[in-house]
Amino acid sequence: MDDIVSQIRALAGEADTAGRVRVQDALRQVLSQLESPQDTLVQLLNAHLRIAAVRLGIGSGLFKSLSQSQHPLQVAQLAAQLCINPQMLARIVRYLASNGLIDEVGVGEFKANKSTHIFSDRKAEAFVYHAFDVCGPAVQVFPDFLDETGYADITSNTKTPFQKAFNTDLACFAWLSRHPKLLEEAQQVMKAFQSGDWAVGFDLFEKEAIRAPKHLERVFLVDVGGGHGHQCVEIRNKFPNLNGQLVLQDLPEVLNGLPDIPGVKIEAHDFFQEQTVKGARFYYLRRILHDWPDTLCIKILQNLRSAMADDSQILIDEVVLPDTKVPWQSTMADLMMMVTLGGKERSQEQWRCIAEQSGLLVEHIHKYHGSATFNSVVVLVAKGAFERRSSCA
């Protein structure tokens, strides 16, 4: 058995992203086959408790204390540091250790492991708080909501399990804007998923970015709903000649207090209103449209369509679901978007459908992050402009 485990670890250590995903999938299948019916049921109950215990570990400062210590700590030491009853703490750390979230190294003695360090990171903390405090209550009422609505499709962002969970008529983002702490956690979650990987190997974009002349008056890229501007910073750093040709847009409450970003114009804007930047080369939306039902996605895209020049393109940085064998991460995200926001993850055909209803066409889909994932940039062009270019070709 030890030899088999060693082989699996070696295989996982040498694998690329796609290989690691295959190893994880295989191990999950083996584990499922090994479980008894009782094991399966108990695991379901444990899943409910596990995230609550993680939130306790974060909120109490337990994970941070263990991560910052150079040596294992006794329960009594931890209890004194955290001002927690030792008997209560002993039961909590015993549970966390049994679930692999901290390491037990002796009787009543614990130390940090990889998971402990992960949960000590600010972005991971925000993710757990958002998952537990915002998504958790909506998931809890999900079955009752569907039963009450006759399992009708969720097509509105104000008629979802979220409204039932929080007894509100407000859409999720509007509700969050009234709860600044929870809004900040949501912003931190969005930051955690920011990356410039989408531009790597994306010839259409890279060639345009490299050859764009300095001091061009035309805006090169508008980051629509771009939060705190991490994508603009990534692009500016990768392509210094674009300094001054990047625009960050988001709602006033998101941009409030945001410091200046050198080389980036910051503009408060609601993407449900007319787009104020006309004729930009690219309009970029990262993980925006999966937050919204189709009707509102079409409204967002129509506002961009009205602002486009003939050579403008819209870049939608999202998952493009395969037609079969969708990975669990994507199906989870799809249901979570539906439960909290009325949104969804979309297939290629679904992207084409909302594009056409917005006066746009899918010109190209750039897949990135390796063959095992479905992160993509969907490139949209205006219908009329595409037809004019085609007739001239």
Score class of each variant (00 low, 15 high):
Thr17His: 07
Phe386Ile: 02
Ala15Asn: 05
Ala382Gly: 12
Leu27Gly: 11
Glu387Asn: 11
Leu146Ala: 07
Arg50Glu: 12
Ala165Pro: 05
Asp3Ile: 09
His290Tyr: 11
Val141Cys: 09
Lys111Val: 04
Gly370Arg: 05
Arg28Thr: 01
Phe205Tyr: 12
Arg236Phe: 13
Arg236Pro: 00
Glu184Asp: 12
Leu361His: 13
Asp39Ser: 10
Lys111Met: 12
Pro143Gln: 01
Leu380Trp: 04
Ile210Gln: 10
His366Thr: 10
Ala18Leu: 10
Ala26Gln: 09
Leu321Ile: 08
Ser391Met: 14
Leu176Pro: 01
Arg352Ser: 06
Glu208Asn: 09
Phe162Ser: 03
Met338Asn: 02
His48Asp: 14
Ala79His: 00
His71Ala: 10
His269Met: 09
Val141Leu: 06
Ser195Gln: 11
Gln33Gly: 10
Lys191His: 15
Asn99Met: 09
Asn303Met: 11
Gln140Asp: 12
Leu49Arg: 14
Leu182Tyr: 06
Pro327Ala: 13
Arg178Ser: 00
Val54Phe: 00
His130Gly: 06
Gly19Thr: 03
Arg286Gly: 10
Met337Ala: 14
Thr168Lys: 02
Glu234Gly: 04
Cys172Thr: 14
Leu242Asp: 02
Val21Pro: 01
Leu301Phe: 10
Thr373Gly: 03
Phe110Gln: 02
Leu62Asn: 07
Thr160Ile: 02
Thr17Ile: 07
Val189His: 08
Glu35Cys: 04
Met338Tyr: 06
Glu206Cys: 12
Leu289Thr: 14
Val379Glu: 04
Gly108Lys: 03
Tyr368Gly: 02
Leu170Thr: 04
Gln29Asp: 03
Phe127Tyr: 11
Gln194Pro: 03
Gln81Trp: 11
Tyr284Val: 08
Phe205Arg: 04
Ser6Trp: 01
Met308Ser: 06
Ala47Cys: 06
Met336Asn: 11
Asp169Lys: 14
Ser60Cys: 10
Leu296Thr: 08
Glu387Trp: 06
Pro259Arg: 02
Gln249Pro: 12
Ile154Asn: 06
Gln43Met: 07
Ile266Phe: 09
Thr168Val: 06
Asp203Ala: 14
Gln24Glu: 12
Lys191Ala: 14
Ala112Trp: 03
Ile4Gln: 05
Arg9His: 13
Asp2Gly: 15
Phe271Asn: 03
Ala76Trp: 08
Asn256Lys: 15
Gly263Gln: 05
Trp292Pro: 01
Ile314Asp: 04
Ile314Asn: 06
Glu217Asp: 09
Thr168Leu: 00
Ala280Tyr: 03
Ser177Asn: 07
Asn113Met: 08
Asp144Trp: 01
Gly61Trp: 06
Arg218Val: 05
Glu274Cys: 00
Arg20Thr: 01
Leu255Gln: 11
Val30Leu: 12
Gly108Ser: 15
Phe239Ile: 03
Gly342His: 06
Leu361Trp: 08
Asn241Gln: 15
Ala15Met: 01
Glu185His: 15
Lys207His: 11
Gln24Arg: 08
Gln348Met: 07
Gln87Val: 15
Phe132Val: 11
Leu289Phe: 11
Ala268Thr: 11
Lys325Phe: 07
Tyr95Glu: 09
Asn303Phe: 03
Pro327Met: 04
Thr155Gly: 04
Asn237Lys: 10
Gln29Trp: 00
Gly225Thr: 15
Val200Ile: 14
Ala165Thr: 08
Val141His: 04
Lys325Arg: 13
Cys232His: 02
Gln163Val: 02
Val264Ala: 03
Lys64Cys: 10
Pro262Ile: 08
Thr373Trp: 05
